[in-house]
Design a protein around this nucleic acid. Structure first.
Lengths: 189, 189
DNA sequence: CTAATTGTTGACCATTCAGTCCGTAATTAC
DNA sequence: GTAATTACGGACTGAATGGTCAACAATTAG
């Protein structure tokens, strides 16, 4: 009968996710991951075959959380415009409290998507899920409910605005610029 | 009398820029840089004190080129809307020919801005220059010429859209989505 | 108790990393 | 020719890297 694991795999993954989110794939050393999790890397190698697998698991976890959050916000009451306002207000609120950590998905896209096939696949699939969610929300309000082309166009713009604001946040753009971009994006719905 | 340098420093920097753009700071090894430039790294260490300095020089070069290009496009004939259309059409054209390399500035923002003070300063200053250029262009057309608040808001949105599309491009978003986002951003001017 | 199984620990490994060292090279001034 | 200066080439350095190894540990079944 096997010896039971003494750590919680999900908890460990949450710590790992923070390290990869902040440092990127190459910048996050296994030593840093050991420190963040309080585990010996051999314990992690029991769960995952290599560093890339740990990275992908962490990214998957992040995307899951981010989409769940977006879903909650975009499933709220009101028109599509109001719901997107809530989503973008969330970005403003993060910047207001000095949170400049940005978005792990954006990081993975710019950092690894063109360098590693598996990361590319995961990033690409994640974008599809975001698009689907944005279009679904828009489809619940006029005129996007009836006009498929307008819905697709606006979903595209909102996605670009969302990711762009994430980049600008990490790039230390002033709060007024982040607010301007977020509010203007919502105003155009 | 000193021995003259046998390579062109600007040419070397262009090669270095490509390596850093593609691989990021951590992922670009000095060995890869040697290979790309055809120089021994000791020759580069004659020009720059360390890897970070090389990286910052490469990023500066990129920003200079990108802003010069944007300046050329945004200084063209027509309304602000038409000029931005040209700029965003450029992004579409890159995607159309399969160029998914994205934007080194975006990469630096998401990758290094929160990890290294000098990179953060350069990235932040670069964003200011982009914003200034976008606002200047908008100020040449109605109603942005007269309405400072609208100008700032639209500049913010266009910046977010621009950077967001860069991220989506690198994230392998489908061409139709990139087109939708770019065209909708311009349509909102 | 032993056997089987997986988990933990810490040492170990070969390679890679950014940077350094030093002999040789190229150029001009004298 | 020598001297002075910076450039080039390739070897070298200590540390860091992702991953492996093997002894010991924890658990249950029989």
């Amino acid at each position: 009968m096997a010896r039971p694991r003494t750590f919680d795999a999900e908890e460990a993954l949450a710590s790992v996710m923070s390290v990869f989110w902040r440092n990127g794939f190459e910048g996050a050393s296994m030593q840093a991951i050991e420190t963040a999790t309080g585990l010996n890397k051999q314990s992690l190698y029991r769960l995952f075959p290599d560093k890339r697998s740990i990275y992908l698991a962490a990214l998957s976890r992040y995307v899951g959380e981010e989409l769940a959050h977006a879903d909650a916000v975009l499933s709220g009451p009101g028109s599509a415009k109001q719901r997107f306002a809530s989503l973008f207000d969330g970005l403003i609120a993060l910047a207001e409290k000095g949170d400049r950590s940005g978005c792990f998905l954006c990081n993975a896209a710019t950092d690894q998507a063109q360098l590693d096939e598996k990361t590319k696949t995961l990033v690409s699939a994640s974008l599809k899920r975001v698009e689907k969610k944005f279009r679904k929300t828009l489809a619940q309000s006029h005129p996007y409910a009836e006009d498929l082309q307008r819905r697709e166009a606006m979903a595209g713009l909102l996605m670009a605005a969302y990711f762009g604001i994430r980049v600008m946040t990490k790039a230390n753009a002033p709060l007024r610029l982040i607010k301007a971009a977020a509010n203007e994006a919502v105003a155009k719905i």
